[in-house]
Design a protein around this nucleic acid. Structure first.
Length: 542
RNA sequence: GUGCCCAUCGUCUAGCGGUUAGGACAUCAGCUUUUCAAGCUGACGGCCGGGGUUCGAUUCCCCGUGGGCAUGCCA
């Protein structure tokens, strides 16, 4: 094991949308590299010509940049590595590790010298294989037997002789015979055995194994791993080949990826061996599943990185949240900036079980981030969100917008929410919530309307249009005194709420006096008039 | 069919043989309040089942069960 700085990579295939499960893998790779002072490389696996468009690649790079996942050096493009892939195939063909099938495809045989003791065990315990469900055929390198699944599908199971040490065959008669003659068909004894209808094969099991930095010691019976096609009939390299060759060429020391690749690992080990390379160390992360506990599919639209951006989540928050999906600290620290995460990141603390996204917690966390973000940082985000909502931020007075952002920020959960919360500032067409009108204005024979009527004159005459003055004028006009005494027949809610409904149309907003100040005198008065005009509607549904 | 992986409150998780099983989000209640929130305080809520091993299992082993993945000339 080398003690030099690790080199890890993120190797997505650009499909036009970056899934959060993938981006979390990128985050873990990035964290691992930065924690150890290593390199985080990017490899774009763009061999799927149809899906790998320049736009798809741009989307990918944009997502990485948005989350601050800076990669070291130039990105490698898999589609440009074809000659390297071909060289690798020639080498394996030449060394007889692989052979060309009649159709032109190339297959790597997991037997012979490739069974390196560093990842393939010696024969161990006795094992048995049921071959009674289908026919048993002999091949040049081993056997091939058929199995049938309950749904009727048939599976070919080619197994090399090397995977069946000490082979014995149990015949239909119950008799157990030496399986060695099967290897030398010429002896004629193989026919005898096959004629005896083999039911079970007995042998001593060998295992392919490796140490996973998350899952621990992992192994899989050699007889359950099939030879692998590395080049298709049309001459193109398959994923496994390209992936491994590129990893070798990029000098990757640690492969950190999703759980769904565990099975591939057992086979990739052979590829590294066949190419004379030392395999990297591996770590496999659990998957992220949807609210039903199932893996995200293309239909779970919520799961794309851009969706989270569009919904108004902060990149630093999504980064933090995703990092916490499967990784945790013993002390339970959750809100962490990048430096803290880099310092604390440790594969030993990565969970092995699947994580379901707790979207409500993401909203909460985004609020935590938003409440602390400096105003100057939030303003541009708000401007973008407003722009998307059809409000030209260029038309707004910058200092006014700054004050509005300051007013909103403390309780904001997402940037997108800002637009909804402040809609009444940007449109004179106030939409009255019927329930709010009924509850606050119309109730008690229009008590709310009366309150509005009382304060209208006072506000009209008000000279200094600032929150404090507005409050004083309004309260005095309604209650006759200011500040409101404890024993006043008026509650603050009875004064503020009608005003809030009149101005915003609803029951919820930030501080009403501050809101009025920002809205301005003339608009405030205009809305009071509009609201008062609804008085004739009392008793009717609005 | 075969193989591999996983399993603690509703969700994310801490726990690495002995704990009143801890925290966060959500929920509920109380306080506070200028509505709604926020905030504060508290409550509710969990070791998938069965066998072992052990003086003692959430923890270790085995068997189930459930979920996921693989078994592609997809990536």
């Amino acid at each position: 094991m080398s003690s030099s700085a690790p080199r890890v990579r993120f190797a997505p295939s650009p499909t036009g949308n970056v899934h959060i499960g993938n981006i979390r893998v990128a985050i873990f790779n990035w964290l691992f590299a930065r924690h150890h002072g290593g390199s985080f490389l990017l490899r774009v696996e763009d061999t799927d010509r149809e899906r790998s468009t320049p736009e798809a690649i741009a989307t990918l790079l944009e997502a990485l940049a948005w989350l601050g996942l800076d990669y070291d050096g130039e990105a490698m493009y898999q589609s440009r590595q074809l000659s390297r892939h071909q060289e690798a195939v020639s080498l394996m063909l030449e060394k007889k590790y692989a052979s060309r099938l009649p159709g032109g495809a190339v297959v790597l045989h997991l037997d012979g010298p490739l069974l390196d003791p560093s990842f393939v065990s010696e024969a161990r315990e006795e094992a048995e294989m049921d071959v009674s469900r289908g026919e048993l055929n002999l091949t040049s390198r081993g056997i091939d037997y058929l199995t049938k699944a309950s749904d009727g599908r048939e599976f070919h199971n080619p197994v090399s002789w090397d995977a069946l040490p000490g082979l014995r065959v149990v015949l239909a008669s119950g008799q157990e015979v030496d399986g060695a003659p099967l290897r030398s068909v010429e002896s004629g004894k193989a026919d005898d055995i096959l004629a005896g209808k083999p039911e079970r094969l007995r042998f001593r099991r060998r295992y392919v194994y490796y140490h996973d930095m998350v899952l621990g010691h992992l192994e899989k019976p050699l007889d359950s791993i099939r030879d692998m096609v590395i080049v298709r009939s049309d001459g193109s390299p398959v994923f496994h080949l390209a992936n491994v060759v590129d990893d070798i060429n990029q000098g990757i020391s640690h492969i950190l990826r999703g759980n769904d690749h565990v099975e591939n690992t057992y086979r990739h080990l052979f590829l590294f061996r066949a190419l004379g390379a030392v395999p990297p160390r591996y770590a496999h992360f659990p998957m992220i599943v949807n609210s039903k506990g199932k893996p995200y599919s293309k239909r779970d639209g919520d799961a794309y990185v851009v969706d989270f951006r569009d919904k108004g989540y902060l990149p630093q928050c999504l980064f933090n949240f995703l990092a916490l999906c499967g990784w945790s600290q013993e002390e339970g620290h959750e809100i962490m900036d990048r430096a803290e995460m880099v310092a604390a990141f440790d594969l030993d603390r990565v969970s092995a079980s699947a994580a379901q996204l707790n979207l409500e917690k993401l909203v909460w966390m985004n609020g935590e981030y938003l409440n602390k973000i400096p105003i100057p940082e939030l303003v541009p985000l708000v401007q973008a969100a407003l722009g998307k909502a059809g409000i030209n931020p260029g038309d707004l007075d910058p200092s006014w917008l700054k004050r509005l952002v300051a007013l909103e920020r403390d309780r904001l959960k997402t940037v997108a929410e800002f637009v909804a919360n402040t809609a009444f500032f940007f449109s004179d067409q106030v939409t009255y919530d019927p329930k709010a009108v009924a509850k606050v204005l119309a109730k008690n024979a229009g008590a709310g309307f009366k309150v509005l009527a009382k304060m209208t004159a006072a506000l009209t005459d008000l000279g200094v249009w600032e929150a404090k003055e507005i409050e004083e004028a309004a309260v005095t006009a309604v209650a006759g005194v200011f500040p409101l005494p404890e024993d006043s027949p008026f509650k603050m809610g009875e004064i503020a709420q009608p005003l809030r409904v009149a101005i915003t149309g609803g029951l919820v907003s930030r501080g009403i006096w501050e809101s009025l100040e920002l809205l301005g005198k003339s608009k405030t008065l205009a809305r009071l008039a509009t609201a008062l005009a609804q008085d004739s509607q009392v008793g009717k549904p609005v």
